[in-house]
């Protein structure tokens, strides 16, 4: 007989995603939902969506959720977690939200060792507002606000969030992953799972940075976007574990 071995996870809502075709948000959402299912925490998880393309993320998970002001998700999640320390709280944030306007909130939440988990999606561009330069935009990359290509002299350098955060003492799990192939999807899921387990164990702050495509604003088709990510983004933002104080989770 046949059995559904891969199917939409339970904690993902029925609502269809609002993302563009080929955008990695949907893959990352699914991985988070799979982890929630596997850890059996759906009924005790609170989520905080950001402002940006994933502003609707609170609608895509069947868990209690809210939307934070732009960049403030770690502060909102802090308030939730302090009010309900026995609950699991995660934020889902893009690079415009987390790495520009929300820089202070993420650094201090990490540094306090706030017992929350952040899923940080880095696609090197502002998606929702129409493809403007993000702090993570690569040098030379053309966006609607760096139409001649990002120049270090005037626009500064791509910001490396994981490299910055690894110095904060309160962070217990920090990994940068991508979802550019089935193999990487499997690794990304393991990272997200470990980040949630870190929180479940009450160890401290955990964050997984996920490199993502933005086919629409990069002006590439979904497959070309993955190639571009592999060739360019991974050079600027190398994949790997930055902090692991969780240890063996088996």
């Amino acid at each position: 007989m046949e059995k559904a071995t891969y199917k939409k996870p339970k904690s993902l809502a029925e609502k269809e995603f609002s993302y563009c075709p080929g955008c990695h948000h949907g893959i990352i959402h699914r991985l988070v939902a799979e982890v929630i299912d596997e850890l059996e925490i759906q009924g005790k998880t609170l989520m905080v969506a950001p402002v940006g393309c994933s502003v609707f993320a609170y609608e895509f998970f069947d868990v209690d959720g809210t939307v934070a002001p732009h960049g403030r998700a770690p502060a909102v999640a802090t308030g939730m977690k302090r009010a309900m320390p026995e609950r699991m709280v995660f934020t889902y944030q893009g690079d415009g939200d987390l790495a520009a306007i929300g820089t202070a909130e993420i650094i201090h939440a990490a540094n306090r060792g706030e017992k929350i988990t952040t899923i940080f999606v880095n696609n090197a561009i502002y998606g929702m507002t129409g493809g403007q330069m993000a702090p993570t935009t690569l040098l030379g990359m053309k966006t609607t606000t760096s139409p001649y290509g990002r120049k270090a002299e005037t626009e500064g350098f791509p910001i490396h969030v994981s490299e910055l955060l690894k110095e904060t003492a309160g962070i217990v799990y920090l990994e940068r992953v991508s979802v550019s192939s089935p193999q990487e999807v499997i690794k990304a899921k393991a990272a997200i799972k470990k980040a949630f387990i870190a929180q479940k164990k009450g160890l401290g702050f955990s964050l997984v940075e996920v490199l993502s495509t933005c086919p629409t604003n990069w002006g590439l088709d979904p497959v070309e976007s993955i190639n571009w990510l592999n060739e360019n983004m991974k050079k600027e933002y190398p994949i790997g574990v930055f902090v692991d104080k969780v240890g063996d989770i088996k």
């Binding site: 002001p69 403030r72 909102v76 308030g79």
Partner: peptide, 12 residues
């Protein structure tokens, strides 16, 4: 800015 958003989260 963070304080008011912590209030928001706790008020939720």
């Amino acid at each position: 800015v963070a304080a008011v958003n912590m209030v928001y989260g706790a008020a939720c």
